[in-house]
Design a protein around this nucleic acid. Structure first.
Lengths: 229, 229
DNA sequence: TCAAAAGTGTTGAGCGTACACCCATGC
DNA sequence: GCATGGGTGTACGCTCAACACTTTTGA
């Protein structure tokens, strides 16, 4: 008990809602708690913010330590501070959401946590704390964000087919899209670079691979262009 | 120094970016600090989160104590936690933005702060801490939010004219709108209730007063309707 | 040759945008 | 009667949505 203050202070944590895309399924990376409270229950990866690190820094560190994911698109979601949300006392958590290419993280390598794994958002286990609520907020945010910004590309490998991209939107938005209209729209933005490569090892005509043109997007953004699906 | 912990803890504050609309000018409520650091400088209203109050509760309390504003639309903005943002030590702040009808708050009544007042966002004084940055984020959020949700009405009195509403959008978005198209669009949504009252004390034809139909909006939202200007 | 997915255009409807004048009121 | 803002309709272009068949490839 070496740290003393004139007024009581809440503890501050970060939690990460990590999304990954697996075929036609949107998944979340969860960890199984080793300690009380909620011992053995599934929870969002996260932990206490160190006194000398920024919030995003803390989120990235916890994500790496607990799931082995060291590269991901990360964005602050919101801060949950209900008085009774943690049985140990007052804990305020800054929630982040992360988007990552699930293919790179199918095998969890170095992890702190007893257990970690991907769960379909349609089949989540019982979750510790108010983590279910946080996931709800994250999902809503993702569904909005994906339509008006090009964050969806963060869930795909660098090179992808138009069908993969369309499936991404269909999965997240949970509705079918028209193939011709989708292609017209996405190609019409001029933000995809057609590579000279095609899919490999498919039992049908191989689709062309594209890359997202980040530079062009930043350029157009500055000129008032708005991405929209 | 009565409160001791095993690990150092950051202090947690809330700060409020309070918007008000004054004719064709978007204004912010700022307070002048009475204490160091940044003594006598202007700052966002805010303060420490009590150990037994929720975050929004804290924001409302501080807003009331420091500016006398007790009713306002309030929404969490984001959390700023850069390590060196406060010279007193590690302080994480949860920023909120508030929308209020400036007419009700022209005279600041009961206030804690030495001084409080409205400032045009185009003519802000030097601000304490990283408050300028927080205001920047709030402005960006307001500009997005006002276009896709009916938060703008929170800046107007209950009854308003269509010209006032249009001026609101023109002020926040900083571009002119076409009168006929604006009226067509906003009336076409079916979210305005035409009252049988008109403006008073104007030196020209008095405009009809309208009210925003919150119930109808909630109803339509559930059916997938999206507000948009 | 069959199965599977890739790739490709047109049309109609609805929406956004541009644009100008008469009306009501108070002074 | 004049100054001030209130209130109103139309036409064009563009974007969105609906819709089906041919091509390529591997097995």
């Amino acid at each position: 008990m070496k740290y003393s203050y004139d007024y009581p202070r809440p503890a501050v944590t970060v939690d990460c809602v990590v999304f990954g895309l697996d075929e036609g399924d949107l998944k979340l990376m969860l960890i199984q708690r080793e300690l009380d409270p909620f011992k053995h229950q599934w929870a969002l990866p996260g932990g206490f913010v160190h006194i000398d690190e920024d919030l995003e820094e803390a989120a990235r560190r916890e994500l790496d330590e607990e799931t082995g994911i060291s590269k991901a698109y990360l964005e602050q979601l919101y801060t949950e501070g209900a008085v009774e949300r943690d049985p140990r006392g007052r804990v305020i958590t800054v929630a982040y959401y992360a988007l990552t290419n699930l293919e790179d993280h199918n095998i969890v390598a170095a992890t702190d946590a007893e257990n970690a794994g991907w769960f379909s958002i349609h089949d989540l286990p019982t979750l510790a704390f108010d983590h279910r609520k946080i996931i709800g907020v994250a999902l809503e945010r993702l569904r909005n964000k994906v339509r008006y910004t090009p964050v969806g590309f963060e869930l795909l490998p660098k090179k992808f087919t138009l069908s993969e991209l369309q499936a991404l939107y269909e999965t997240i938005l949970e509705r079918p899209l028209d193939k011709r209209n989708f292609r017209k729209k996405i190609l019409g933005m001029g933000l995809l670079i057609e590579t000279d490569e095609v899919e490999k090892d498919v039992a049908h005509r191989a689709a062309r691979l594209y890359r997202f043109n980040r530079k062009e997007y930043r350029q157009l953004s500055r000129q008032g262009f708005n991405f929209a699906i």
